[in-house]
Design a protein around this nucleic acid. Structure first.
Lengths: 194, 194
DNA sequence: CCTCCTCTAGAGTGATCGCTCTAATCAGGG
DNA sequence: CCCTGATTAGAGCGATCACTCTAGAGGAGG
């Protein structure tokens, strides 16, 4: 209710992107869902769909990172925090009937070869995620290079599991990916502790 | 030249799907690329875009599986075969300027919540891949349950790495995912051999 | 009151969407 | 030759696409 017109547009677009992707989300549908007149969209985002898309990608990326950070902060150990991220993703998938997964993966694949500004936005988000996760692992005592590998592996695992889980409507892939990621982490911790 | 009209449609559609996704690929563009009159498309695929999409998903899934099988058959050991699959994927990505990746991942995410028959087609393909990979690992002496976990983990890793690699235009994620997958496999082999 | 500027409001633009339709073309059997 | 069914060929359909345009509503300063 207190959300501004601009925020309502961004929120509605983010939800449309998650469900229908970038190409599949129509601007008319977006303004209708946001309960905003069409003219307001081009007032706030004069660059049209591309500018709106770039904003939504960066914003969704930040929001997702904040959620993951909060989950990890609430965990007792780094090992547990990784497991909680995957089990949390599995829970959200199930609760949303396999609709709400990664907010930018679908868009990332769609625009990778067709829309350079949006591709750059997705790349920026992924790189920020990698850096944030790497810092976590470094703080846990893992060497920088190994920490970055773990971070990339973990993000790749969760994204790949999202694809399999949504396609098969099962959390099996997410559960397996979580076990795989935590196994990798434990091995790295064991190594770094001597 | 010897390719039939139907095959040319399927090939053109597969390429359009890889680059633009399901929603982004227009039927007019497809028939133009395939050098086929519009009427022929609806003669061969009376069910329209959905029927064509389902055919292309299953066909691309089978083709991709055949390629991976060939790569693995040409490898000396199961460990090497897994590494070759990832390094081969990285090479294809680089050679195609990060356009040609998994032929169905983009479509899978797009249609997961919007098009039930196509979602089922993608689920079918993924399940076949999992079964095929599981059989490979079982033949290598790994227990059935563990082999299925490895198969799912490997497919999730390669799919997730495709997303990161295409977005960032770098093979780093694919290299890391390959190392992660082969590490998992070696651990499982070590365990199964006592 | 008036002016100025931001924002809301939605009708209307040409282009493209998936799809339907009819006609032409072709091959093989009689 | 004619007939028949499969396939090619593409114009045209209503709907929707991203987007532009003009007009009005609302609040702040004078």
């Amino acid at each position: 209710m207190t959300a501004s017109t601009k925020e309502r547009i961004l929120d509605a677009t983010a939800e449309m992107f998650r469900r229908y992707g970038y190409t599949g989300a129509g601007l008319k549908q977006i303004v209708q869902k946001a309960n905003v007149p069409f003219g307001s969209l081009y007032h706030h985002f004069p660059g049209g769909k591309v500018e709106l898309g770039a904003h939504v990608i960066r914003r969704s990326g930040q929001m997702y990172q904040d959620i993951v950070t909060a989950v990890m902060d609430a965990s007792a150990s780094i090992e547990e925090s990784v497991r909680n991220v995957f089990s949390g993703a599995a829970a959200v998938l199930q609760a949303s009937d396999y609709e709400d997964a990664c907010p930018i993966a679908t868009v990332a694949l769609e625009v990778a070869s067709t829309n350079e500004p949006l591709r750059e936005a997705t790349a920026e988000v992924f790189e920020k995620w990698i850096v944030a996760a790497t810092e976590r692992f470094v703080s846990a005592g893992i060497a920088e290079a190994k920490a970055r590998e773990l971070a990339i592996g973990m993000i790749a695992a969760v994204e790949g599991a999202f694809i399999l889980a949504r396609a098969t409507r099962s959390t099996e892939a997410m559960d397996v990916a979580g076990a795989m990621a935590s196994g990798m982490l434990e091995a790295a911790l064991h190594e770094s502790r001597g």
